[in-house]
Amino acid sequence: MSENKTVRIIVTRQDRPDSPPYEEEFVIPYRPNMNVISALMEIRRNPVNAKGEKTTPVVWEMNCLEEVCGACSMVINGKARQSCTALIDQLEQPIRLEPMRTFPVIRDLQVDRSRMFDSLKKVKAWIPIDGTYDLGPGPRMPERKRQWAYELSKCMTCGVCLEACPNVNSKSNFIGPAPLSQVRLFNAHPTGAMHKAERLEAIMGDGGLANCGNSQNCVQSCPKGIPLTTSIAALNRAATIQMFRNFFGSDEV
């Protein structure tokens, strides 16, 4: 390995939420086992671009550094993914880093994913267990069901599925695959199922389940391998039944 091996990185930068984006190229010294985060840290340590001009350090978000928090998601060489698990050795150079434009850009690679958390509130992605007295242990969950439900619980709200979805954009109000799959997760829980209809009705509203166009990019892109399209199809079935219950009447909650 040569001493002066380098890594070329082209970052799509943006100074303010309302300012136009521009590209800036960086050439940084190579070290073994680098990932995109350590490359960005190198730029932060010495913020000089490829032309040798001093510039501002690139802004990005990170937290866990082990692909469970979802904060460091960005578009790397055209595909949305986490920068912590994007290894320099496995990427084609120049490495192009862009923010996930589906979300409002705050600065450089940092985006505002609030809409995803708002969607989780909208679909009631929790199990209400609080009360004025101890309700005791909840009902048991069948092991086989727990196994597939566990897969859905791996969602880290990273936003990659929304970025990949052609129906999530400024022209549509589709909430995207991630919050939909959470509805399936919480409806699968024996206590959560007590609010099943409420969650289904939330996703049967505007911008909900029916806006899915089945491009299935989400399931291909999900870093956690969550079966998002299976969730969507399962919810479609539940929504069909709920639709008939709502119209013809039912004693089910």
């Binding site: 052609p166 954009n169 022209k171 549509s172």
Partner: peptide
């Protein structure tokens, strides 16, 4: 059709092509 933002060049999966 016009509320979709096609991205087959980035995500050239079979189903995404069919979507487009």
């Amino acid at each position: 059709a016009f509320t979709a933002q096609n991205n087959v060049s980035r995500y050239s999966y079979f189903r995404n092509w069919m979507f487009m």
